[in-house]
């Protein structure tokens, strides 16, 4: 593993103030290193601050303490992050293909040159033929897959994914898991993946970070040494079972 982390997080803190003036300490002290090319998953109880952590990394939420060091030599955090939000967040007035091309417009890259790529990505997420559809003509799962294509269009180095497959049915979810691993391997991306599914986290990741309930810290960061490339039947192996138990145990502790 390369020795310079792409992102190094230390003592990260976030305190929200609600409209009524109440203080919510979401993140108390988060420490996590993410190395280039790594696939890291984050699991933790609902409301512990997983979304907040991703948003801080994307520059959408201000932190209230701690530091985030970014390896600026190999990575431009303003142009090379792809964010898959928890909700699809498609623009109703844009056709599917134009939704996928939105980051290209914001980053002021030539649109015509990316059109082919947008079509390829839609094919990749299983939406070939839906280029000209409007979002409200698609199911929730299809919408989320459009949003994944959109997050990939500008070929980001780092993917921040916030429970991206939470709304998908089990079969589609498994297919998407395999596709995601393929994209990750072929395009050499670094992925930070938030999920509720412990099996999903272990299946996908090099490392699973378990967060405690609010105010949250990283309880464990578990290395997953299952060989790659992985197929779905790795989930029935004894090692997989052991790893799941470990994750469950550390979630119990909190």
């Amino acid at each position: 593993m390369p020795n310079t982390p792409l992102i190094s997080i230390r003592g990260l803190k976030k305190i929200f103030t609600t409209l009524t003036g109440e203080k919510i300490e979401a993140l108390e002290n988060i420490a996590l290193d993410i190395y280039p090319g790594e696939f890291v998953s984050i699991v933790g109880p609902s409301g512990c601050g997983k979304t907040t952590l991703l948003k801080i990394l994307a520059g959408l939420v201000q932190k209230d303490g701690g530091e985030i060091k970014v390896d600026k030599e190999s990575f431009d955090p303003t142009r090379e992050v792809g964010f898959v939000f928890q909700k699809p967040l498609l623009l109703d007035w844009r056709k599917v293909i134009d939704n996928v091309l939105l980051p290209i417009e914001i980053l002021k890259i030539n649109r015509a040159s990316m059109f082919g790529r947008a079509q390829e990505l839609l094919e990749l997420v299983g939406l070939k033929g839906f280029e000209k559809a409007y979002p409200n003509e698609l199911s929730g799962g299809m919408q989320q897959r459009v949003s994944i294509a959109r997050a990939l269009i500008h070929d980001p180095k780092l993917m921040l994914m916030d429970e991206p497959f939470g709304a998908l049915d089990a079969l589609t979810r498994e297919r998407m898991n395999l596709e995601l691993l393929r994209i990750w391997r072929e395009a050499k991306k670094t992925v930070l993946f938030v999920t509720h599914g412990i099996a999903e986290a272990i299946f996908l990741s090099d490392r699973v970070a378990v967060l405690s309930a609010r105010p949250s810290t990283v309880v464990t960061a578990l290395d997953i040494h299952l060989s790659r490339p992985r197929t779905l039947n790795v989930r029935t192996s004894p090692e997989f079972g052991k790893l799941s138990m470990k994750v469950y145990d550390s979630l119990e502790m909190v």
């Binding site: 948003k55 964010f83 967040l89 939105l102 914001i106």
Partner: peptide
Amino acid sequence: VDEDLLDLVRYHRGSKWQ
């Protein structure tokens, strides 16, 4: 506007005009 939609532009450091 759904505030979350604005995040789509903001995380790419898009301008207020965009």
